[in-house]
Amino acid sequence: MKLILLNGPPGSGKSTLARRYADAHPPALALDVDRVRAMIGGRRENAGEAGLLARDIAVAAARTHLSAGHDVVVPQLLARPGFAERLEALAAETGASFHEIALLPGLAETRRRFAGRCSSEIETAEPLTEEDLAAAYERVAAYAATRPRASILRDEDAYPALLASLT
């Protein structure tokens, strides 16, 4: 049983890879914290509190699914300590292996993917500018460099590399 954290900037392919993995490994759970946050009332007015609540809910859902013996994939942009460590501790608590993967396919590819997102994607509080996207990319890259066991995937088609990193 695996707990897989997919970190990356918007447009890096986190959610797409999480869904692809879950579809190929049923009944794995693709646990998108942003979708959980979108269900919390007042999330725009209380963004910080909503984000913390969404992460707490996600950890509880992951614990339930892992305890039942099933894989969980969490696609989430992380650029500071805290949540990755919580997920790593949860994996240890439930006997799951923990896999932390940063998706960094290059800024140009990330921009292309982000521009191609459909309108049904989870909205951000404010629209992202090119500068915001570049800054998010750099923050994720810098954070991933501080995580000694994190794998960094730079492939445009990251799914085969993802599977290889899990063995």
Rank of each mutant, 00 (worst) to 15 (best):
A108L: 06
T94E: 10
S67I: 10
L66H: 12
R55Y: 02
S97F: 01
L78V: 04
H65S: 07
G51V: 07
H99N: 06
G48F: 03
F83P: 02
V74N: 10
H65K: 14
T110F: 01
L78F: 06
I4M: 10
L87W: 12
L31T: 12
L66I: 01
L103K: 05
P27D: 01
I101Y: 05
F98M: 08
A54F: 13
A38E: 15
P9Y: 08
R55L: 00
L77W: 11
T110P: 05
P75M: 05
I101A: 02
L103E: 13
R35M: 15
H70K: 08
V73D: 14
E85W: 05
S15L: 03
A47C: 07
A22K: 01
V72M: 07
I4H: 09
E93I: 11
T110A: 00
A92G: 15
I4E: 13
E100V: 11
G82D: 13
E88I: 14
L53F: 14
A28Y: 00
P105T: 06
T110Y: 06
L107Y: 07
A30T: 00
A30L: 04
S12I: 03
L53C: 08
H65W: 12
A30M: 06
A102N: 03
E93H: 07
L31M: 07
A84S: 14
R44N: 14
N7L: 00
A18I: 02
R63D: 13
L90K: 06
P27K: 01
A28C: 04
A30S: 09
L5Y: 02
R19C: 03
E85A: 10
G42K: 07
Q76T: 02
I57V: 15
A24P: 07
G48R: 05
A18G: 03
L87C: 14
A18N: 03
S15H: 07
V59W: 03
D56Q: 14
P9L: 01
V72P: 12
I40S: 00
E49H: 14
V33S: 06
A91F: 07
T64H: 15
P81Y: 08
A18R: 02
